[in-house]
Simulated scan of single mutants.
Amino acid sequence: MPPAGPPTPRGYRPRVSTDSGGAPYDAVLMDAVADLGGALRGLVDASVRTSVPAAELSAVAAVVREVTGRLGAEVRPPGRLSVLDDPVQFRRVYNPVTGLGSAVAPPLRLREEPGGVVGEAVFGLAYEGPPGYLHGGMSGLVMDQVLGAATIRAGLWGMTARLELDYRRPVPLDTPVVCRARVTEAGGRKSVVTGTIAPADEPDRPLVEARAVFVLPREELRAEYFAQVTDASGRHAPPSRPTDATAPGSGE
C-alpha cells in the first residue's frame, strides 16, 4: 500500500462543481491539478528548448527530484482511477492527449460539432519528429483519441482494433491545428471512424488523414480486461464504457 499523504488541511471544504453531464467533482482539487499540469507542461517545453549551461541543468535536475519526492508521497497504482475521473462522463484528467493534469498532453480540447467532434491544439518541441514537425507516432496517438471520442459522441463505443494513417504533409510545430472525426459506418459490435489533422487556418487542407475500426469486446473479455479497475477508494469499479475520451466542460 502506498504511503499516506499529508492530512487534509484543517477547515478545508471541497467546492463541488458538476460537469456538463451532471457528474460532481471537487473544483478546488480540479483547479490545482490543472495548475500543476500546466506548470509541468511548461517545464517539459522549457527542458527541450533550453540552452543553459551544464551546471544550471544539474541544479534544476536536483530541484525537480526534490519536487518529485513530494508528489510521490501518495500515489495510485495502474488501474485505480483518480478521484477526479469519471469514465462514464469521459472525464480523465491525466489522459495523455486531453488531460489538463497531464504533463505530456498538448492538451487537445475536444468538443462536439454536427456529425462528429473537433479539437484544437498546438504541438510544441517536445513532440518533434523531423526537425520542426510533429512526430508521426504522436499523430497516431492524437487521432486514436479523436476518433474514439467521435465514436462515443455517436452513442457507440469500443476498443481500437485497427488504426490507419495517411501522412499527406508534415504537421508543423508551434502552429495551431484542428482535428476532426466522425463515424462513417456502424453495425453490430463494429464502428468505422474517419478524421483529419489540418492547419487551423486551412481546416479543409488535411495534413494527416486517419481511419479506425473500433470493436466492442465480448462481455467475457470486457470482464477480463477491466477486472482490476477500481475507483479512487480502491473499490472495484469497472467502467461501463472503457474509454478515456474527455467531455467538454468536465475539467479536461
Rank of each mutant, 00 (worst) to 15 (best):
38 G>W: 03
46 A>I: 09
244 D>W: 09
108 L>Y: 04
121 A>M: 04
241 R>S: 11
246 T>W: 00
66 E>P: 01
30 M>K: 11
144 D>C: 07
238 P>S: 08
85 D>M: 06
106 P>Y: 04
21 G>N: 01
180 R>M: 09
17 S>D: 14
103 A>I: 07
108 L>I: 05
175 T>G: 04
163 L>K: 05
221 L>I: 12
167 Y>Q: 08
112 E>M: 01
109 R>D: 08
45 D>T: 15
63 V>C: 12
165 L>S: 13
106 P>E: 12
15 R>K: 14
181 A>G: 10
178 V>L: 10
79 G>M: 08
111 R>C: 04
132 G>C: 06
242 P>Y: 07
189 R>E: 13
181 A>Y: 01
182 R>V: 06
131 P>I: 05
127 Y>T: 07
104 V>S: 09
38 G>E: 08
138 M>R: 10
236 H>W: 04
248 P>Y: 02
166 D>H: 06
82 S>K: 04
244 D>V: 13
62 A>K: 13
212 A>E: 03
162 R>I: 07
240 S>E: 11
62 A>L: 11
183 V>P: 00
203 P>N: 07
57 L>R: 12
238 P>G: 09
137 G>I: 07
142 V>P: 00
113 E>L: 06
125 L>G: 03
99 G>W: 00
144 D>W: 04
184 T>M: 02
28 V>W: 03
84 L>Q: 07
165 L>H: 11
20 S>D: 14
232 A>I: 06
64 V>H: 12
233 S>P: 05
209 E>R: 10
87 P>M: 08
145 Q>E: 15
26 D>Y: 04
150 A>S: 08
79 G>H: 07
101 G>A: 08
175 T>M: 04
92 R>F: 03
59 A>N: 10
220 E>H: 08
178 V>M: 03
203 P>T: 11
29 L>G: 09
97 V>A: 09
70 R>K: 14
167 Y>A: 13
164 E>A: 15
18 T>G: 05
123 F>G: 11
72 G>Q: 06
122 V>F: 03
132 G>V: 05
250 S>L: 07
11 G>A: 06
189 R>Q: 12
150 A>H: 00
18 T>S: 12
